[in-house]
Design a protein around this nucleic acid. Structure first.
Length: 920
RNA sequence: GCCCAGGUGGCGAAAUUGGUAGACGCACCGUCUUCAGGUGGCGGCGCCGCGAGGUGUGCUGGUUCGAAUCCAGUCCUGGGCACCA
């Protein structure tokens, strides 16, 4: 009886499906556990061996929890809306729904081969109307809500209207337009349009004009997290700032709660920090400086600072060039210079601005007055001050701020020192510990203490107040694209009205052309029937559907609600979420916000979607290179390449064995492009160069899991991916080492079955040493699985197998529990052996108290004894073993004291049960 | 520049609380089974040394009976943020 993995895996995958063993009920007496993978975007490239890493880890954990008696929700689906499918449609004229469906079918067949325990009845697809109906519905809830800062939660727009009717907006300053202020009488006098415009400034999903990241090549707007180094994350196209009508999510209102929420969820410190930095909370003060300018139209300059304590060290002011007040404050003498500078700023792309941080700027001719000593402070403009943060203006304190210092140096502005010896005249010192000098009423105060003093004084004088700022901006929520959820919004006389719930889903219409519509509008603007209905022509961004999919899995077929409240109360939070770090400031922030809104509105009972997040590392590709002699059709082996002038060419890793090139395969590669190539070998072999890079088709370093599964089986593949190293770590794929894991499974199989004799498991009573192996392994596997140390768990299986092999143990009493233990890791082979052992239920249905086992033996052993770390002698000591590895030595004080000639031991240390050290 | 994580054999790595460093696997070497290849079995395998022995977790110090692990400094690698006042 051989280990025929191909047959076994096919058979059991079919059997599991036939029996529906992965179906999960929404009601159960068992405790619940929710294990979730970040669902994939079904790209045309299919899966490579890097993709399933997290899926395998979550699958092992889900199966493990199931074995331990939990009702485990472990679903999978597709994040199916998105740019690549649309780009493909533009290029090939194929409807995105068609190419997406094909990609999904391909993904599914690849996933199925690996033997995951997903409940496929719960599959979601964000591009299906019965799914995006609810994405649209949630959007309408966002549209119909505002954030009440007093109660710190989202509330209905109707409640806000009622407040306005009674008292205007005094109690609820407008988040969208800080200066908007009206009384009840004003409100009641507003016409319909004005009222709707005002409400728009409060809505959690709102439409407004704003500077957006416009990508010409993609013809759409991108969110901040989709722009990397001034180019688009997808495709690397240039991105410019543009003012456009856009939809936004008012995520900034949730900044504090998103920050506080981090404290009660298990994310890695790195992940929490990324989110914290992205939110970028800082506290300080806004200060109004009186302004002295020729035209004196603008009387005040409001700046934001985190360091009001340095106010006596202000040597100049800087305002962002984009600010409206630049023109009115500019003096006649400086007008030309200012205009030239504004032209220069406009000419610079976002990219250039980021790439070369030149010190530039120009004096406006205006002066601000320091309220405490009446000093006249020159006002400059410079691009290093951002219009979008704070007030777009700063007070510059060169002795305490590095950027201000460089600026002062560059333009020869004299520096006032307010921190004495803390400032060396060479570089700024941002300390808060210095005792202030040259600082009027603050002299002699420590800077950190002065902050409060200044703010109180400013407030008293009515020229400043405490202020908190965030780096995070509201999230751009519209895309000028076709392949996304249409907004359930219609425009009547320039006012956005929500569609009625009964009109959902608003289905995405078919189009003839996927090219953009007029004036930065999406393809939907080209459809007459659509524009006739006055429907919004933008669509939602990729992260809309993924912001709530974890809820839909709970109740995927519900046509009455996005998810029944009873069901979401049962499943609650995702207990374990596995995925990459790349979504740190996108999906993981948006989905947290949506969850909080749904919680505030009473649709769900928890306000954080994920209890614990594990970030799996990336599996990198290990690229192989051949060296072609320039101008010839001849290739030289790696060790000899320096003797020639060569070009380094990527070669398919799949035709290289380790580093040795399969020359015949190479000749046939790429339709025989190199059929006539000649080779300069070393020791009769062609050796390739290697490099670790990102796994990608263009680098020919992708390894297809189908191929690995075909050659070694899914069980080997699963275990090998885990064996590579810790789940969280990035590591290069190396097919070579898989042999070791494959050997292990074959060896494991041979404990149960012999090639000629068939099943060789006996019903004999297990010996002490055999039981010790078993129980040691149970403990180790349980601990390792629980702490996601899957690589050491695999090692523990190998050790157990080797030890049982040495003991020639073929006893059911040992092998049957071991089988259960291995099931999460290698389900197919375990299922087959389980059935060979005569079980009629599947191993997944079996309940087996394997983790409750205990075992006690007693024995005695010779132990080395050392005193103060120095080896002295050996002693025969009796020991007790209860539970594997927990070895208690019986070593009485009298014995030791006698042996130490009456001295009392300070401490007796047992070193891994193998040595005893006595400290005196 | 700032923040975070990490540096252990030829390679992937282990060491859960400070306790025999290198488990487990790959590669390699020897050996047995075999006509042969593959499979499988046995043994070896940090470095220096024939050996006894010495030495060893990026580097320099420190704490400790005892440090890969804790502390200070330093170098390197990976990741994140980057004019956020």
């Amino acid at each position: 009886m051989e280990y025929n993995f191909r047959e076994i895996e096919k058979k059991w995958q079919a059997e599991w499906q036939r029996k529906g063993v992965y179906k999960v009920p929404n009601e159960s007496p068992r405790p619940k556990y929710y294990v979730l993978d970040m669902f994939p975007y079904p790209s045309g490239a299919g899966l490579h061996v890097g993709h399933p890493l997290g899926y395998i880890a979550s699958d092992i954990y889900a199966r493990f929890k199931r074995l331990k008696g939990y009702n485990v929700l472990h679903p999978m689906g597709y994040d199916a809306f998105g740019l690549p499918a649309e780009q493909y449609a533009i290029e090939h004229g194929i409807h995105p729904a068609v190419s997406t469906a094909a990609n999904i079918a391909n993904f599914r067949s690849q996933l199925d081969k690996i033997g995951f325990c997903y409940d496929w009845d719960r599959e979601v697809n964000t591009s299906k109307p019965d799914y995006y109906k609810w994405t649209q519905w949630i959007f309408l809830q966002l549209f119909d809500s505002w954030y009440n800062r007093r109660t710190q939660k989202a509330e209905r727009i109707d409640a806000l209207k009622a407040i306005f009717e009674k008292e205007g907006n005094k109690q609820h300053p407008c988040p969208g337009d800080a200066v908007l202020c009206f009384s009840a009488a004003d409100w009641n006098a507003f016409d319909e349009k004005k009222r709707m415009d005002v409400l728009m400034e409060y809505r959690l999903a709102y439409c407004g004009y704003g500077e957006v990241n416009w990508c010409e090549a993609l013809g759409t707007v991108l969110a901040n997290d989709e722009v990397v180094n001034g180019v688009s994350e997808r495709g690397g196209h240039p991105v410019v700032k543009k003012k456009l009508r856009q939809w936004y999510l008012r995520i900034t209102e949730y900044a504090d709660r998103l920050l506080e929420g981090l404290e009660k969820i298990e994310f890695s410190e790195a992940m929490k920090e990324m989110q914290t930095n992205w939110i970028g909370k800082s506290s300080g003060a806004e200060i109004d400086f009186a302004l002295k300018s020729e035209q004196s139209v603008v009387k005040n300059l409001r700046v934001y600072t985190t360091r009001p304590d340095t106010i006596f060290g202000v040597d100049f002011m800087v305002i962002a060039p984009e600010l409206d007040i630049v023109e009115p404050i500019t003096s006649a003498a400086q007008a030309a210079a200012v205009e030239a500078y504004l032209d220069y700023v406009k000419s610079r792309s976002e990219r250039e601005r980021m790439a070369e941080k030149k010190i530039t700027g120009v004096f406006t001719g205006a002066y601000a007055i320091n309220p405490f000593n009446g000093r006249e402070i020159p006002v400059w403009i410079s691009e290093y001050v951002l219009a979008g943060y704070g007030t777009g203006a700063i007070m510059a304190v060169p002795c305490g701020d590095e950027r201000d210092h460089r600026f002062a140096r560059h333009f020869s502005i004299p520096v006032t020192n307010i921190i004495g010896s803390y400032y060396n005249g060479e570089e700024a010192n941002p300390t808060k510990d210095a005792v202030l000098e040259n600082s009027g009423f603050l002299n002699g105060l420590r800077m950190k203490d002065a902050i409060e003093v200044v703010i109180s004084k400013l407030e008293e004088m009515g020229i400043g107040q405490r202020k908190t700022n965030y780096k995070m901006r509201d999230a751009a929520f519209s895309r000028q694209r076709y392949w996304g959820e249409p907004f359930p919004i219609k425009w009547i006389n320039g006012v956005a009205y929500p569609l009625d719930e009964s009109e959902l889903p608003l289905k995405l219409p078919d189009v003839d052309s996927y090219s953009p519509g007029p004036e930065g509008e999406g393809p939907l603007a080209n459809i007459k029937e659509w524009t006739d209905r006055q429907l919004e022509t933008n669509t939602m961004p990729g992260y809309a559907g993924s912001s709530w999919y974890f809820l839909r899995y709970m109740d995927p077929h519900n046509s009455k609600a996005f998810c029944d409240r009873k069901v979401s109360d049962y499943w609650g939070q995702v207990d374990l979420y596995i995925g990459g770090t790349e979504h740190a400031v996108g999906h993981l922030l948006y989905s947290r916000m949506w969850t909080k809104v749904l919680f505030d509105l009473g649709y769900i009972g928890h306000d954080e979607p994920y209890k614990k997040l594990v970030n799996q590392g990336m599996i990198q590709g290990s690229s192989r290179f051949v060296y072609r002699i320039r101008g010839k059709h001849e290739f030289v082996s790696e060790g000899l390449k320096n003797k020639y002038d060569t070009d380094k060419i990527h070669v398919d890793v799949n035709i290289v064995d380790g580093v040795e090139l399969d020359i015949e395969a190479f000749k046939q590669w790429r339709n025989g492009e190199y059929a006539n190539a000649t080779f300069i070998l070393e020791d009769g072999k062609y050796i390739c160069g290697t490099e670790v890079e990102k796994m990608s088709k263009s680098k020919f370093n992708t390894v297809n899991p189908d191929m690995i599964v075909e050659k070694f089986g899914a069980d080997t593949f699963r275990m090998y991916e885990m064996f590579l190293g810790p789940v969280e770590m990035s590591k290069p794929w190396d097919t070579k080492g898989i042999e070791g894991v494959h050997r292990f499974i074959k060896k494991f199989w041979r404990l149960y079955a012999d090639e000629n004799k068939g099943l060789i498991v006996t019903n004999e009573k297990a010996s002490d040493s055999e039981l010790k192996v078993l129980h040691k392994t149970i403990k180790k596997i349980e601990e390792d699985t629980e702490r996601f140390s899957f690589n050491t768990a695999v090692s523990a299986f190998m050790i157990a197998t080797n030890e049982l092999n040495d003991l020639k143990c073929h006893k059911r009493a040992v092998l049957e529990p071991l089988l259960i233990l291995l099931t999460p890791y290698a389900p197919h082979v375990c299922e087959e052996l389980w059935s060979l052992l005569g079980h009629t239920d599947t191993i997944l249905e079996a309940s087996y108290p394997v983790f409750e086992a205990k075992y006690v033996i007693e024995s005695s052993k010779e132990y080395p004894i050392s005193v103060n770390g120095k080896l002295r002698t050996t002693l025969n000591i009796s020991l007790e073993v209860s539970q594997p590895e927990v070895e208690k030595m019986v070593l009485s004080n009298e014995v030791v004291q006698k042996w130490l000639e009456g001295k009392h031991p300070k401490k007796i240390i047992f070193v891994k049960g193998k040595m005893i050290n006595i400290v005196v």
